[in-house]
């Protein structure tokens, strides 16, 4: 039972205010958003910051819903297993997510994240415009704009890493920071 205490301590040390682990659907997305909104309402956070947090949360959660079915764990009988966290430090909020992806999709994902992180505010705006003009929604309903939008709302570089899981899959970890004061 000590893991409960350990988990709690770990959340406190890392300033984590919300964790959700499990299946991700549009319904869970809505519930998590509602919960986070109530938290932010009661914290009296500035409305621009609240909207940016909401924005990044939606994109991160909908990314998980759309893409985490890429890998399945038949032995555990679970699909869509991913994790979503919100951190609240003194100077910033962090929206964090982790989900399994197929290794063959890693190079493409890396390339687009590296491109996004190489751009400044104006560059991101141009990239956004370029994509929105030329894109068509994918089978999964994505516009290919999620990471660009997260980077624009964040104003900081996206933090990301891949953790090796097995021969076919990796775990994609993403952290998007939102500064509290402009």
């Amino acid at each position: 039972m000590e893991f409960i205490y350990d988990l709690h301590q770990s959340m406190m040390t890392n300033n984590v205010i919300l964790i959700y682990e499990g299946d991700f659907t549009q319904e869970t997305t809505k519930s998590i958003l509602t919960m986070a909104e109530r938290n932010l309402e009661s914290s009296g956070e500035e409305s621009t910051i609240k909207k940016r947090i909401f924005n990044v949360m939606v994109e991160a959660l909908q990314n998980i819903v759309k893409h985490s079915d890429e890998t399945e764990c038949p032995e555990r009988g679970r699909h869509h297993s991913a994790i979503f966290l919100i951190g609240n430090e003194q100077s910033r909020y962090s929206i964090m997510s982790g989900n399994p992806i197929r290794k063959e999709n890693m190079p493409g994902l890396k390339a687009s994240l590296e491109k996004i992180n190489s751009l400044d505010k104006e560059g991101l705006k141009e990239l956004y415009k370029e994509i929105i003009k030329s894109t068509t929604l994918s089978d999964k309903g994505g516009a290919g704009l999620g990471f660009v939008d997260m980077a624009r709302k964040s104003g900081e570089k996206l933090e990301w890493s891949f953790v090796d899981v097995d021969a076919e899959s990796a775990f994609f970890c993403l952290k998007v920071n939102i500064a509290r004061f402009k």
Binding site: V58, Q62, I132, G141, G142, A143, L145, G146, V148
Partner: peptide, 12 residues
């Protein structure tokens, strides 16, 4: 009040 990126494409 708010729209996601998939909606942004549809708005266009």
């Amino acid at each position: 009040e708010y729209f996601n990126t998939a909606s942004s494409k549809l708005i266009l």
